[in-house]
Structure formats: structure tokens, C-alpha cells
Nucleic acid binder design. Structure first.
Lengths: 123, 123
DNA sequence: AATGGTGTACTATGTATATAGTACTGAATA
DNA sequence: TATTCAGTACTATATACATAGTACACCATT
């Protein structure tokens, strides 16, 4: 995993975990890697992962049991919400950003289609 | 201007200036607000604006003259590039983010159209 | 009962960011 | 020439972030 240096690592890992939940890679009630294993895997300090897990727990996205481990929420409703909020955020951000740049709805769609077509030719 | 607390202020202001260039609000060779005026307007320390301007100058986006002021680049090519790079970044980020979430090109366009239509009904 | 893996907590250290305050340098102008 | 407005530079202080290292509390298993 690559980190940007203009954003706290623990926030990037929080988003990383939420993304994995949104894509279904992390499933309901699944056991997460331990604080120390995750730290080693991502090459960060275990305190940073501990902070990450504590923030995720505060938001009800995971729950931790001392001496046992950390687990993805048991609420399917929460999992759905994480996915849907993410999709809504991505689309609304996109629309807003392009409108600020002067794009109409029509042009926005056209440019998106052009981008998708051009990609195939290039790659 | 509102700042997010998870990203350095000076980086947010850099983006803010680049956006104004991209939209045409800041024009070629135009004089920027002074370090101290901009600081007062955005309610940050003047050192933060000085840092911002120095980064923008390092990238050739503005140039500063001691005792005179800071100015938008005289290069129209640079201005066009700032706008085009921004648009490309927004579109490619959007496409990538939605693909990660499992969206096909077709579904991506459909959801965008649905969002744009739904918006009109809601607002 | 002892061991090992778990989350958690704490101190210490270093870096980046932002502020406050001050002062210097250069250019335009009254 | 003196003043004013620019950018620039410096010290000091505070906070957030990340690391390193250590230790403790809890739970399951041997």
C-alpha cells in the first residue's frame, strides 16, 4: 500500500478498510488482521494501526475485543451504507468538480464517454 | 474559504489558486492579492501564504517580485495545462474509483445520468 | 497454571504544520 | 529623500502525526 504524504496515514488506512468493506473483500463479522500484523504488512507502527482501529470502532464499523481481535461490524445495514455513501460521494464530488470547471450535464457525460472510449484505444 | 483539517492549509490554498486559474477567474499575468491581504482574507498567518506562493512559484504557476507583488504566470500554455490536467485528473479518478467499486463503463454512465436527473427532481 | 496472541496505554523523540511577532530587502511613489 | 507597500527571513511556541520501545490487561489454549 502506498501512502500520500499530504494526509495522515491513519486516515488513509481507515479509508482503505472502508473501501475493502465497500467492495465486499471484508465481509460481515470477519476477523481483521491483528494490530501488529497489519502494522507489519503496511510497514507502519503498531500504534498507528491501533489508532486506526479505534477510530473505526468509534464509528461502529469494526469492534475490538481485548485478547481476541478486531472484527468487521455484524450489521449488514452498516456495510450497505458504507458502500452507498461511498458511491454517492464519488459521483456527487465528480459532478460538483466538473460543474465548477464549467461543464454542463451534457458535456460531462460526453467527456466521460470520450474518456472511456479513448482508454480502450490507448490501452 | 473552508479548510479541511486533514490536509495542510497551504496545500489547500495552492489548489484553490490553481482552481481559480483553471476556471479563468485568475487571468494571465494578473496581480494576485498581497501575501498579507490574502492572509487576512483567508484568516491564516501571512507565513502560510508566503509558503503557498513560494510553492506556486517553484512550479512556475506564479512569479513574485520583491517590493512589487505576485502575479499569475504569463504563459497561456501553462494556464491551459493546469485546466486540462485538472479535468483529466477528475475524470480518471472518478472512473478508477467506480471501477474499484465494481462498476462497468455502462453502469457508470447510467448512474451518472440517474444522479443528474434525480438532482433536478430533488432540488 | 503457564504461555502466547490480542488490544491498549504510556513515555520519549523527531518532523511537519501553523501561528505570532519581528525585522529585513527591494521597488514605487509622494 | 522618506514613506509605504511588497516579498522574504528569522525566532519562538504549540499541535498533530508517526515512530520506537516498553509494558499492561485480557482471553484462549496448552
Amino acid at each position: 500500500m502506498k501512502f500520500k504524504d499530504n494526509m495522515p496515514i491513519y486516515l488513509q488506512i481507515i479509508d482503505h478498510v472502508k473501501l475493502k468493506i465497500a467492495t465486499g473483500e471484508y465481509k460481515r463479522a470477519e476477523k481483521l488482521e491483528s494490530v501488529r500484523d497489519m502494522a507489519q504488512k503496511l510497514r507502519v507502527n503498531h500504534n498507528t494501526i491501533a489508532k486506526t482501529y479505534q477510530f473505526l470502532e468509534k464509528d461502529g464499523i469494526i469492534f475490538s475485543k481485548k485478547g481476541v481481535g478486531s472484527f468487521i461490524t455484524e450489521s449488514e445495514e452498516m456495510i450497505s451504507r458504507i458502500r452507498e455513501e461511498r458511491i454517492f460521494f464519488k459521483i456527487s464530488t465528480f459532478v460538483n468538480d466538473l460543474r465548477v470547471l464549467g461543464y454542463s450535464d451534457k458535456k460531462m457525460i460526453e467527456e466521460l464517454e470520450k474518456f472511456l472510449k479513448g482508454e480502450i484505444q490507448n490501452g
